[in-house]
Design a protein around this nucleic acid. Structure first.
Lengths: 134, 134
DNA sequence: TTGACACCAGGAATGGTTCCTATTAATTTG
DNA sequence: CAAATTAATAGGAACCATTCCTGGTGTCAA
């Protein structure tokens, strides 16, 4: 169960992780692909997706999935939440300051063995607030 | 801004809402399509999607969107959360029992005007727990 | 009656993501 | 070091829930 598959340390995987960790934003796979391509011009988008998935599986990076929007990735795995702009998709970090922001995580709900939860705020980012006010 | 578009009460929309409210499950658009088709054999899947969207816009039903999984719809708009099975996609209702389960909802975070949040638990449902235990 | 337009059925298009295939190359073993 | 093993790659096709398009219909108000 806890057997981790052998991972090969390929240049592609190394560069993808390096570039993601350099960023403070939360890029999509396509955005990261554009950045990585400057160093590895022949890399394919599929390789970026596969490695982001692998790095996420191994707990090295965070993956944020949203319905109807591209997934975004985060090199910072420290516990934190996110606010997502419903207008432009931009994401900012929220580091919990008080206990009230952390919901209880029961071990069992409705017979389910609960393995986790997801708390995400959404709203309108500063830029879009200005833009929408004409 | 608050101008609501005129809605026509078509048979299609009426039947879709009726059948959704009869269910205690949280069907996908395709599942509801199959049910509604028994009463309206010529209805199209696009019509089901459009009306579910309209009903959701008007606050008549709840829409649950997930990345990499079909959206599910709920005729019960009473405040509650959901547990989703990561194995089979099944969803059960969770009605908050104590205040600790309700996260603080700040009006502003990182400069964002916060319009809402989403708290969703995930885990393994009773059936899948049994199935996975061989 | 007539104009306006919300809505419909049917089907094509969309687009993020995954999958497929032949090839390459990282790692292990002898 | 050479050979064997097989994870990983590039490129592109496939997937599929959802949205969009088109031509036509039904309803309402004036």
């Amino acid at each position: 169960m806890a057997i981790t598959k052998l991972r090969r340390n390929t240049p592609q995987r190394r560069v993808i992780l390096e570039e993601l960790c350099l960023l403070k934003s939360h890029p999509t796979a396509a955005e990261l692909y554009a950045i990585v391509r400057k160093r590895l011009p022949r890399i394919s988008l599929g390789t970026v997706y596969r490695n982001l998935e692998v790095l996420h599986e191994d707990g090295v990076i965070d993956k944020m999935e949203f319905a109807g929007a591209e997934s975004r990735f985060d090199g910072n795995t420290e516990l934190h939440y996110h606010v997502r702009c419903t207008e432009c998709g931009r994401i900012e970090d929220i580091f919990p300051l008080d206990w009230e922001q952390t919901p209880a995580q029961p071990a069992e709900l409705a017979g389910f063995q609960v393995t986790g939860y997801r708390l995400e705020y959404f709203g309108i980012c500063p830029d879009c607030r200005i833009r929408l006010a004409h």
